[in-house]
């Protein structure tokens, strides 16, 4: 990694949801702030800025990561997916998103982006999760509205439907 000067802004380039993006950031700028305020991608939310709540979870090079614990300059050259990438086309929801809507697995929707990003990744790695697997996995996210019960139900339902229609994953 090149040595960066704290005093100035640096050009950061990466692939975001399939498109090349670039903007400038001081080395200390968080990736959350960079995505939200420099690139205008406000779907990724900031709930705690200390890596506990999981609201800011995105996918960096195919791995779920806390954007609030990542510096923008660390993302240079990476491939990043955010919640804005999940829907297959405008006006249509993915199977996972549909399951969340059907099961009322969100209320305020603030934590939802991070949970969707985690689950989207997990269900691709583990298409056959048990409820217990999902419960443990979701343990890395905080939601204060739903009590998690409908989130688990939506995740189980989505897993089942994704197995039935793998092409739509």
């Amino acid at each position: 990694m090149p040595r960066l000067s704290a005093e100035r802004r640096h050009r950061v380039r990466f692939t975001l949801n399939g498109s090349a993006v670039e903007a400038e950031a001081e080395p200390r700028m968080l990736l959350t702030d960079f995505l939200r305020h420099e690139l205008g991608m406000t779907g990724t939310h900031v709930g705690c800025e200390h890596g506990v709540c999981g609201a800011c979870t995105i996918e960096i090079n195919g791995v779920p990561a806390r954007a609030c614990l990542t510096l923008a300059v660390q993302a240079d050259g990476a491939t990043i997916r955010t919640v804005e990438a999940l829907a297959p086309e405008p006006g249509r929801l993915s199977i996972l998103q549909e399951a969340f809507r059907r099961h009322h697995a969100l209320q305020c929707g603030f934590c939802t982006a991070g949970i969707l990003m985690s689950l989207d990744n997990y269900l691709r790695q583990r298409p056959n999760p048990t409820e217990e697997n999902l419960r443990v996995f979701l343990g890395g996210h905080l939601c204060r509205c739903t009590g998690y019960v409908p989130i688990l139900a939506a995740a189980m339902d989505a897993a089942k439907r994704l197995r039935e229609v793998p092409a739509n994953a």
Binding site: T42, G43, H45, E84, L93, R102, G109, F110
Partner: peptide, 19 residues
């Protein structure tokens, strides 16, 4: 019934104050 609020919230198009 399904909520009218959800499509925007599920696709990252919510309009929270910092958005």
């Amino acid at each position: 019934v399904e909520r009218v609020e959800d499509a925007a919230l599920l696709t990252g198009r919510g309009r929270f104050i910092d958005d």
